[in-house]
């Protein structure tokens, strides 16, 4: 016969199980968007794709000037050249990415049920290369950045369409892990992603204003003026983790891929506008 304490334990375990099973990504996204709409009622939803330039008028003016002669234009030329290369077996990248003529950036990251993990655009490119007999590219190397910049450019205007199927527990678990990462404080400064990019949006960190988490993934890879080159979204994640004085995870680690899965799902409906230019 189960004792009262056993019954209590069963109720607690059942509640924990149900709360995990009943995770609702769509409800999360609606709440996330509603939070920013309430915080910045004058900013239209589509503007969040422009990151901090949706909020900081002075910085926006400078950015619009920079975009007149985009600093990533040479990278786009390189990317187009790489995209059209033929693999040793006669195939091309287009054979791996169905519908790539009109852009595929908006569909990544996705959950790969065969590999049982989140597949980002970068890992998909390397899976494609490996399938056709080529070595993978470095995740923040020039070739990878050029290819992803080209693929983002071709996808401009397509609304982000990340799927987190509630019928696929492993996808849901990856999404939940990314969500946990986003809201977890870490590092010597004890900050979470959300501390800056949800609750402190628009406030200053030194001379910079903090951007909204909504829309973060739409414009990567970006050209960063202070670095004089392109960086990937995961390189930016790594920089943020370092900034709070925590040891960063590797680029394309499970942790960062899950984080990208969650964060990009939050931006569903915003248009792809990469590659971008930032300070």
């Amino acid at each position: 016969m189960p004792t009262a304490s056993h019954k209590y334990l069963l109720i607690v375990l059942a509640a924990m199980f149900c709360s995990s099973v009943l995770a609702d990504p769509n409800a999360d996204r609606e709440a996330f968007v509603a939070y920013f709409e309430a915080s910045f009622p004058d900013i239209p939803f589509n503007e969040y794709a422009n990151g901090i330039y949706a909020i900081d008028a002075d910085a926006r003016e400078q950015w619009e000037e920079i975009e007149t002669f985009p600093p990533y234009s040479f990278t786009l030329d390189t990317g187009a050249g790489l995209w059209n290369e033929t693999f040793p077996d006669g195939k091309t990248y287009a054979d791996c990415f169905a519908g790539s003529d009109s852009g595929v950036r908006q569909n990544y990251p996705r959950f790969d049920t065969h590999r049982d993990e989140v597949e980002t655009l970068e890992t998909a490119i390397n899976h494609c290369r490996e399938k056709h007999g080529l070595a993978g590219l470095k995740f923040n190397g020039e070739k990878m950045l050029a290819l992803t910049a080209h693929m983002a450019f071709v996808s401009r205007g397509n609304p982000i369409s990340i799927r987190v199927s509630e019928d696929e527990p492993r996808a849901l678990a990856a999404y939940e892990a990314g969500k946990q990462f986003y809201y977890t404080k870490r590092g010597q400064l004890n900050f979470s992603c959300s501390d800056c990019h949800v609750t402190s949006v628009g406030l200053r960190v030194r001379a910079d204003r903090l951007s909204a988490g909504l829309g973060h993934p739409t414009h990567f890879p970006v050209y960063r003026s202070k670095l004089g080159g392109m960086i990937s979204l995961h390189k930016r994640f790594s920089g943020c983790v370092r900034d709070v004085r925590a040891k960063p995870f590797a680029l394309q680690s499970t942790e960062f891929r899950n984080l990208e899965y969650f964060l990009t799902f939050m931006s569903n409906g915003l248009e792809v506008n990469g590659p971008g230019a930032r300070k």
Binding site: A27, D28, K185
Partner: peptide, 13 residues
């Protein structure tokens, strides 16, 4: 501490 505390920061409607 964060293994539970993060849940209280999730944006909710």
């Amino acid at each position: 501490h964060e293994s539970e505390a993060w849940k209280h920061r999730v944006v909710k409607k």
